[in-house]
Design a protein around this nucleic acid. Structure first.
Length: 424
DNA sequence: TCTGGGGTCCTAGGACCC
DNA sequence: TCTGGGGTCCTAGGACCC
């Protein structure tokens, strides 16, 4: 009987992805501590190795380490998602040339190496890293294992130990034992703080400990997800590679305000702008929505009275028309609004998404005539002349509530007027 | 003064039905 | 002197991920 092909999944993870993207286009950022901030210039969401070495943790609020930033001349950047999204597409374009691929997140891709398994995979993985680096400028690490969870774990091991040269292969059970015994269970993919605490109470602190937990006990302790994790750590793949992206279920546009908002009029403007952006995203996916909710809430970190204003409504008929979504969002927020609070954040969430041809027909609520053609024209104008060229009046022009983004780099790869310039 | 945004999956519990 | 059992659907909230 022929032996079944050995399962081998590779996870390619870009190193310090956002920082690496910035460094591709600005060499002055190389070799110095660099951090990229979240929206609103709030906290650090990407750090160069030099910044990690200074002890700056993921998610640290920028204002808390102002001193350290000045002392060590940390280069601080606002996030530039147009650049990162486009660089991510470049990396994936390289990877799909190697093997069937699942783009898991903006900086991680799984590859199915089963067809190539049975020989040493390390030279292939090194070739893959070198090709991505040469063609995109982005450094990566590669982890290989018989399941997604073990591939993730192998990747973390490759990142942690420079001696491995950026590649760690855990397909062989002998290779796994030592790595799992040294790997903190709290860092296993799928184990968050709540589960880690429950496991610690049982004396389980390493990935090896979780692997050896009775699957039934794992299910009782957590959920079916924790039981699956035990099997995955034992080398049994429970999570399939998703070569075709599953249909999207929901979509949200939420933003903190640049400063506290106290009036309904201002919050309505913000929510109209968010609904406008949500409608654009919805149409870009070729979908319509059946349900919308809008919210505004106060800042949970701040003292003072807290309030979370939120309402949802059905969209009948289902729609992707900016005018419908802006109107629905405004009605929801106005209905939920209470005066007397300092609101910090607002958003619009769309759910029950489906392609228009799958949307139920309604007898009495006909869709707006000409909606599709009008929206297509608006999208074309905004694509050609820049986002925000055409927008509903309700979204306002003052935008005093808008976010800070004081340090954004140019959109090198997606805007002609922001192309990098080389002087020779 | 200053603490992100956008997703998915799972479960419990209520409403409702036969 | 005593109130079934089982099924589906929906929603809210928790947990986790990047």
């Amino acid at each position: 009987m022929a032996e079944a092909p050995r399962a081998a999944l590779a996870l390619i993870d870009c190193n310090n992805f956002y920082v690496s993207c910035e460094r591709v286009f600005d060499p002055r950022l190389r070799g110095v501590p660099v951090g990229v901030l979240s929206n609103n210039d709030g906290c650090f969401i990407a750090r160069s190795e030099e910044l990690k070495a200074l002890g700056v943790r993921m998610g640290t609020p920028a204002f808390q380490i102002r001193d350290l930033i000045r002392r060590h001349r940390v280069r601080v950047l606002s996030s530039n998602y147009a650049l990162y999204g486009s660089m991510s597409a470049r990396v994936n374009a390289v990877l799909v040339g190697f093997a069937p691929a699942e783009a898991y997140s903006i900086d991680e891709t799984f590859l199915d190496l089963a067809g190539i398994a049975g020989r040493d995979l390390r030279p292939l993985c090194q070739d893959l890293r070198a090709t991505v680096l040469r063609w995109t400028g982005i450094p990566t690490c590669v982890g290989v294992g018989p399941s997604k969870t073990l591939a993730k774990l192998a990747n973390a091991a490759a990142k942690a130990d420079p001696a491995l040269g950026g590649v760690c292969d855990l397909t062989e059970p002998q290779a796994r034992a030592a790595v799992l015994a040294a790997f903190p269970v709290a860092e296993v993919w799928g184990v968050g703080p709540a589960t880690a605490a429950k496991l610690a109470a049982l004396g389980i602190t390493t990935a090896a400990g979780l692997r050896d937990l009775d699957p039934k006990q794992a299910r009782a302790l957590g959920t079916v997800a924790l039981e699956r994790l035990v099997w995955e750590l034992r080398g049994l793949a429970c999570l399939d590679l998703e070569l075709v992206a599953p249909p999207r279920k929901g979509l949200a546009v939420t933003r903190s305000f640049g400063r506290p908002v106290t009036t309904l009029a201002e919050a309505l403007e913000a929510v109209a702008a968010h609904a406008t952006r949500a409608a654009e995203k919805l149409r870009a996916h070729g979908l319509v929505a059946g349900r919308l909710s809008a919210f505004a809430h106060t800042a949970p970190h701040h003292p003072g009275p807290q309030h979370h204003a939120a309402r949802a409504t059905a969209l009948v008929p289902m729609t992707a028309d900016t005018r419908d979504l802006v109107a629905a969002a405004g009605r929801c927020l106005a209905a939920a609004w209470r005066d007397g609070f300092a609101y910090a954040k607002a958003g619009v969430v769309l759910e029950d998404l489906c392609p228009p041809e799958a949307a139920p027909r309604t007898l009495f609520d006909a869709p707006r005539p000409g909606s599709e053609r009008l929206m297509a024209a608006v999208d074309r104008l905004n694509a050609r002349f820049g986002r925000g060229t055409v927008f509903p009046a309700a979204a306002g022009t003052e935008r005093a509530w808008a976010q800070r983004a004081a340090h954004r780099s140019p959109r090198y790869t997606t805007r002609l007027d922001e192309l990098p310039v080389a002087r020779a």
